[in-house]
Nucleic acid binder design. Structure first.
Length: 460
RNA sequence: GCUCCCAUCGUCUAGGGGCCUAGGACGCCGCCCUCUCAAGGCGGAAACACGGGUUCAAAUCCCGUUGGGAGCACCA
């Protein structure tokens, strides 16, 4: 699920929750060739992960079931028949090649490239000829030659001039419905009151309005079109901008609360200064009147910062639990008790969950191989200093952060080194890295025996 | 090309005629703190696209220009 869709879903959900409405999840999979069961599962998983629940829809059911459009094909055919009977739709025999040819010609004449209405005015003889040669026919909706106005909650009234909207296909030649028909029919049948979607769908709204009218809908849903989310370069957000799928953010160790908070602020704001909003605060504060009109650039750095903030805010046990999958994925067997004690040492140095694995690996494996910088530190300190450090640590009493700190300081001082210079070789020997959680606390957690073994084996 | 949408720091945004020498946040820079890395604290640079109106007064209203975006599918 693309983050743009996630943002749209979030705004819809927040709007429904804020106003005490019913949030409906409908799977629009009328192009069966592009929608797989797996894709739908991912969509549902992603929504659940974000904490977006629905009152009607797949897996929860509801009075308007089914909620998957490919399970409602009979309904669309029936409504299509009604549109034909009412003179609102007609069969179109134009082939793909013919359409493309005429489209190109229209463009060459500097005219709008939409369908020219050819088959609407077929004579009986022409129609019969097509039928006799068994040409496949699509069903087109006939747009009236009048101005359409969309009352949009974000943008106000948007007018579409008469004649600017061409006839469009509502049933493909294989009999399957297109989005325009299916969505309009379902909005009517499911008693949809509000449709919140991306701005790219704004031009399709008058077409859906026309279908609704032709179907005799007593009222229209209220529409709200959200600004698009674009990449840092202001081009449509795509893979080349990095992660765009919610699943990818989850795998990289983003917290759903961080992503939700960040997404809420893309195109909406509570006031002039509020940055952090919990789920409940969002529901409380959210409404469409504060939705921005401009496309919003997705800023990964701000999301990262926000993720770091939410990681710091997490309770220790909660964070530890969320870390577990990342350790097991990395093949590091953790001792839960040690992890819980170590979490407070690292929670404010993380932006992503998987960072914990690198920071704490040294606690859960004795297979320490110094990285390049660690090796350099050890070489520079020399075996004599490292041996002295081992001796000092052996004598540390008690084996607590305070006791260890005193031992390390004593050792550094004896060698005429400051803390930074004196401690770094020990850090390198014990963690295999130049970067680690605070050293005394780390050693305390590791235990005296394992610490000494590592320092001694680093002498050379 | 045609139709529609949009225009405040690099980015997300506040602002709706006087509270604006334009506020907040990310990022950036500097300083402080400091055992590494972070986090944190303090400070700083940084924007009303342009041109015309309207008005005593315009970032705010109107028109135009320019620039960006979306749509124009037997995709959704």
């Amino acid at each position: 699920m693309h983050v743009g869709n996630a943002r749209t879903g979030l705004f819809s959900w927040l709007f429904a929750r804020h106003h005490g409405g019913t949030f409906i999840l409908r799977v629009e999979d009328t192009d069966a060739s592009r929608v797989t069961d797996e894709a739908i599962d991912i969509l549902i998983d992603s929504l659940r992960w974000l904490g977006i629940d629905w009152d009607e829809g797949p897996e929860v059911g509801g009075p308007h079931a089914p909620y998957r459009q490919t399970e409602r094909l009979d309904i669309y055919r029936e409504k299509a028949d009604a549109l034909i009977a009412g003179g609102h739709a007609y069969h179109c025999f134009c082939t793909k090649e013919e359409l493309e040819e005429r489209r190109a010609a229209a463009m060459a004449r500097h005219e709008a490239p939409g369908y020219d209405g050819r088959c609407r005015t077929l004579t009986d003889a022409e129609r019969r000829a097509f039928e006799d040669e068994e040409r496949p026919a699509a069903l087109r909706f006939h747009m009236e030659d009048k101005e359409y106005t969309v009352h949009d909650l974000v943008r106000g009234d948007v007018h579409f001039a008469a004649g600017s909207l061409r006839d469009f296909v509502i049933l493909r030649s294989d009999g399957s419905p297109t989005y325009l028909l299916a969505a309009a029919v379902d909005d009517l049948l499911m008693e949809m009151t509000h449709v919140i979607r991306g701005e790219d769908l704004l031009p399709s709204t008058p077409r859906q309005l026309a279908i609704l009218d032709a179907l005799g809908a007593p009222a229209h849903p209220t529409y709200a079109h959200l600004p698009l989310i674009v990449g840092a370069d202001h081009k449509p957000l795509s893979k080349r901008h990095g992660s765009v799928a919610v699943e990818a953010f989850r795998e990289q160790g983003y917290l759903p609360e961080a992503l939700v908070n960040y997404l809420a602020l893309l195109g909406w704001s509570k006031d002039e200064s509020t940055t952090f909003l919990s789920r409940d605060e969002l529901i409380e504060a959210f409404d469409l009147d504060r939705v921005s009109h401009n496309p919003a650039a997705f800023d990964t750095e701000k999301l990262e910062w926000m993720n770091g903030h939410y990681i710091k805010e997490l309770q220790v046990d909660d964070l530890a639990a969320r870390l577990l999958p990342f350790f097991s994925e990395a093949g590091v067997a953790v001792e839960p008790d040690v992890l819980s004690e170590a979490v407070p040492l690292i929670n404010e140095r993380m932006k992503f969950l998987p960072e914990a694995v690198e920071l704490l690996r040294f606690l859960f494996t004795d297979d320490i191989r110094p990285n390049e910088k660690a090796a350099k530190l050890l070489a520079k300190a020399g075996p004599d200093y490292v041996r002295a450090a081992a001796t000092a640590l052996e004598a540390a009493d008690p084996w607590t952060a305070e006791g260890i700190m005193a031992a390390l300081d004593g050792c550094a001082e004896a060698a005429g080194l400051n803390r930074t210079k004196g401690w770094q070789p020990v850090r390198a020997a014990v963690t295999g890295s130049n970067i680690s959680p605070p050293l005394p606390e780390s050693l305390q957690l590791l235990g005296r025996e394992r610490t000494l073994a590592r320092v001694r084996s680093a002498t050379g």
